[in-house]
Design a binder for these strands. Structure first.
Lengths: 331, 331
DNA sequence: TTTATTTTTGCATACGTATGCAAAAATATA
DNA sequence: TATATTTTTGCATACGTATGCAAAAATAAA
């Protein structure tokens, strides 16, 4: 069980005690400059590397952030992954990546996070059970729901202001003269889809404008198939608001297949502003999620809670902006 | 420093020793069924959870796989990420995700992997220094280069058979009657781009067919800009082989912008078979990477090396297949 | 029933580090 | 120079678990 070079070896070579070696590597600990230099020289000569497990065993803390993600193949989330990894790396944290195939994170994934006593958890597009939340709380592990929220507000969540966004989208489409619209939702139970619908519907009802909702699943194929259904019903609307961009791209491709001209016959608006939205084959009008600010707020909250756990909860909603492209406007 | 429920607490409640508790949780250890039941009942009642750090400190092993990724926003790699996470989760391993912005993994990232004494490392689209490789070797941490290889063959790498693929792509384009072609490369120094070029060029030279190479960077924008350059030079080829799909999509959009008809005037072939290649707006002919087999071979090698480290190296090349769509063939 | 063999268990210890506390060393003040 | 104060250091210990080994218990054989 004997491993490599230890703090004892370094201490011997540097002519100090093991606890002085430890103090050199422990931020904020008191150690003289002279001792520090001796230790670092010895450590370098021996190729010493602090043992992270021994440290975590003593401190009961890690420099690991658990990141739980479901829709990793939606181009919005790799961007999120990249930004979180980059931001936390600067702070000395590593990312334990958990992929989940379910709307709700599974118990064995929670167990993994607890077993490693991660410093914090981010769940990007899934939810979690009350039991799981309690487990994290009891272990004083701060949690952020990213781009999701759960009714009851016992969580810290960071989202785009979906309600305001969808109101503005509705108003924008009204202003372009549309009077017959549909909303294509994501997975029925997600907070994002519900709110995007609500804002949209509220404005349309205030203006006594006809609308209809179709349920889909946040995938390209789901968007495509919904248009197939709408076309087969012979009910082509003047405008379509789609709950996310990847689905909207499927909508556009299906409309093209049926020789339905965008935006002349049907206007299409998505949500996210993924990279592909700007591609000329789509040129999708969309709501840009304020991803930089969302990541920043998440990182700020987690680092504050890691430093001093309070368990406080809040729902943060950040405004994005409408990006108008050729799916709603002829340029 | 006192943490939660420990094996001692469980032992006391179950009326056995701490080492018997440990034996229940350690696979392969000898423990009677009666003792096992008593321990598990006590553990459940107390909500016991083995401390991963104490374990790793003793065993010097973890159940963490380091996954280093550069092009996380190329749709090929989120798919890879998802599959690795799923495959290793079944084996009880978690993924420590490392994003790198560089062609070569940086020292501080290697340090992270070493500090956590990961059980294995996968690097998907970057390389590493000889020093880094030596560090991993000295710590008996198995490494796989995924979709990359380094000349000299001192690594274990798993790739698509790029040479054979690009030969077949060249032959396919010849058979369609093209006699004037270009190759758009990825980042100049990557093994994948070099090999995809080599196979292509070899066949074209054997057949005395004109070709030209343009250097790009594996991004959509890179592909788009290369076409802008080619068009400004007034040298429209009959066929374009692009080193990866995301770049090929940019190529198609730029050709469309210039009213250049695909495949009538120019045929376009990509590489990867990402999800977007099948979208009707592109319908890209491409070489499908055998991702399932590549992931399987990687997982198999790592688990074998984790069980019994040998350090053996090999270059695995797996055949993919040509997927013909409308960018080369009118249907 | 006694003896031999196998299985199970507990004791004692180690893994590598951080940390409370008292002692030693360094610095400041009279 | 002596005293007071502050800074630095080493000692001893604990963190929670796995493990070598001898002892105890269980099982098999004579």
């Amino acid at each position: 069980m004997k491993q490599g070079i230890t703090a004892k070896d370094v201490a011997k070579l540097a002519g100090v005690s093991q606890s002085s070696v430890s103090r050199v590597y422990f931020e904020g600990a008191t150690v003289s400059q002279k001792t520090r230099e001796k230790v670092l020289a010895a450590a370098k000569e021996l190729g010493y590397r602090p043992n992270e497990f021994a440290r975590s065993l003593i401190t009961n803390r890690t420099k690991i952030i658990g990141l739980v993600m479901k829709g990793v193949q939606n181009p919005f989330y790799p961007q999120v992954l990249k930004q979180f990894t980059t931001a936390f790396k600067k702070l000395g944290y590593s990312i334990l990546f958990v992929y989940t195939n379910n709307d709700e994170i599974q118990k064995d994934d929670i167990d993994t996070l607890l077993n490693y006593n991660v410093a914090g958890v981010i769940i990007t597009d899934a939810t979690l059970s009350l039991q799981a939340n309690e487990d994290l709380f009891n272990n004083r592990i701060p949690l952020v729901l990213f781009n999701r929220k759960i009714v009851g507000n016992k969580f810290f969540s960071v989202c785009c202001n979906n309600l305001e966004a969808s109101k503005q989208i509705a108003q924008y489409l009204l202003k372009t003269g549309c009077s017959n619209m549909i909303y294509i939702s994501g997975n029925e139970n997600t907070s994002t889809s519900k709110e995007r619908e609500k804002g949209f519907v509220t404005v349309l009802e205030e203006n006594k404008v006809k609308y209809k909702k179709y349920i889909s699943d946040y995938t390209y194929e789901g968007g495509y198939e919904t248009i197939e259904e709408i076309v087969s019903q012979g009910k082509i609307p003047e405008a379509i608001f789609v709950a996310n961009d990847i689905m909207a791209l499927g909508v556009i491709d299906a409309l093209k297949k049926h020789q339905i001209s965008v935006p002349d016959e049907v206007k299409v608006v998505g949500f996210d502003n993924i990279e592909m939205s700007a591609w000329p084959s789509y040129s999708l009008t969309t709501w840009e999620q304020p991803i930089n600010e969302m990541v920043k707020r998440t990182v700020d909250y987690l680092t504050a809670e890691i430093n001093e756990y309070s368990g406080f909860t809040k729902n943060i909603e950040i405004d994005g902006r409408l990006i108008v492209r050729n799916s709603t406007y002829n340029s």
